[in-house]
Amino acid sequence: MTTPPLAPALPPALPLDDASAGAIVDAMMPLVGIPMAPEWRETVIASVKATAAAARLVLDFPLDDTVEPAPVFRA
């Protein structure tokens, strides 16, 4: 029994703009405990946007629930 792909029913996810990416970075830095200097912020935001664009390609691809993650742990 396979699960039907959900992709057609997904709500749209908009590309990340500078303001949204900046808000994410500003919120996350205290959480992860990194003292980010103001002059690094612009390139960090650009990298967050690039990663989000890459992730979008991956997330847009429907996968059946039975597809396991690649790394396998053996006790």
């Binding site: 991956v58 997330l59 996968l63 597809v67 396991e68 993650p69 690649a70």
Partner: peptide, 12 residues
């Protein structure tokens, strides 16, 4: 969740 999904895509 994105990383998990990427590792599942890797299997596919």
């Amino acid at each position: 969740a994105w990383v998990h999904r990427a590792q599942r895509f890797r299997s596919w």
